[in-house]
Simulated assay, not measured.
Amino acid sequence: MKGQNISVSVPTVIKYLDYLKEAYVIEDVPLYSPKAKAKLNYYFKLYDEDVSLNSIRVSGNRYDLTHNLENIVLNELIYLGFNVTVYCSKGREIDFRAEKDGKIFLIQVAYSVAEEKAYDREFSAFAGIDNTVKKNIITNDEIDYSTSAVYHCKLRDFLLMDEL
């Protein structure tokens, strides 16, 4: 079948995505728009329920560790009872907006921010967001990269927490 063009309808794709969600293979996370101050029901980002699925078809032992960490953090946030969305404002995306008991957290996930380029990329996602929302970055780094506006949490510590 390789090289053949196969036409599949949108309803068929949606049906199979629903099957995958029902089987706990994938989790769809809606987009949150601060401009609309609501979840957008037409946009979802898909995450694997089991992080091993991210690595099954990877060639050359090249794993996307940050993507795996995002999946781990998402699963933990859901386990802790948070309502989780992807936060998008002015074309910039923050990995997660987690809400529970009236508290809102914005969360960036990265394997490491030790390199200046990674640090700038991850922390700049929070630029322009007021300090009424708690901003967090979760990494594997041992050094504390917290700033006056962003709290840095080690992945290990996050996984041992009962709440944020």
Score class of each variant (00 low, 15 high):
L164N: 07
N71S: 08
M161H: 07
E76F: 02
I26N: 06
D157K: 08
F44Y: 06
S52I: 05
Y47D: 05
Y79E: 15
T66K: 01
L17M: 10
L159N: 05
S59T: 15
Y16A: 13
L69R: 02
E116T: 08
N68W: 07
S124K: 09
D95M: 00
S9H: 10
A36P: 00
E27D: 08
R62G: 15
S148Y: 14
K135Q: 05
G102H: 05
A110M: 02
K134H: 09
Y32E: 00
I72A: 02
D28P: 05
L46T: 11
S146I: 04
D64M: 08
K134V: 11
Y79Q: 13
L31T: 03
P34A: 03
H152T: 03
D48A: 12
S33V: 02
Q108D: 05
H152N: 04
E49I: 14
I56Y: 14
L31C: 03
E115F: 06
D18K: 15
V10T: 10
K154R: 13
K35H: 11
V8D: 07
L159Q: 04
L53E: 03
V51R: 14
D101K: 09
E142R: 15
V58N: 13
E116H: 09
V150F: 04
E122C: 03
N136R: 08
G3V: 08
S89E: 13
L17N: 08
L74E: 01
L69C: 06
E99C: 04
I143F: 11
K117V: 03
L69H: 04
V29Y: 00
R57I: 15
S7D: 15
K37W: 02
D64R: 08
S7P: 09
R62S: 15
V29M: 01
Y87H: 01
I14S: 10
Y145T: 09
T12I: 13
K90C: 10
Q4L: 12
G81W: 04
S59A: 14
I137H: 03
L164C: 10
D101C: 07
E76V: 04
D95L: 00
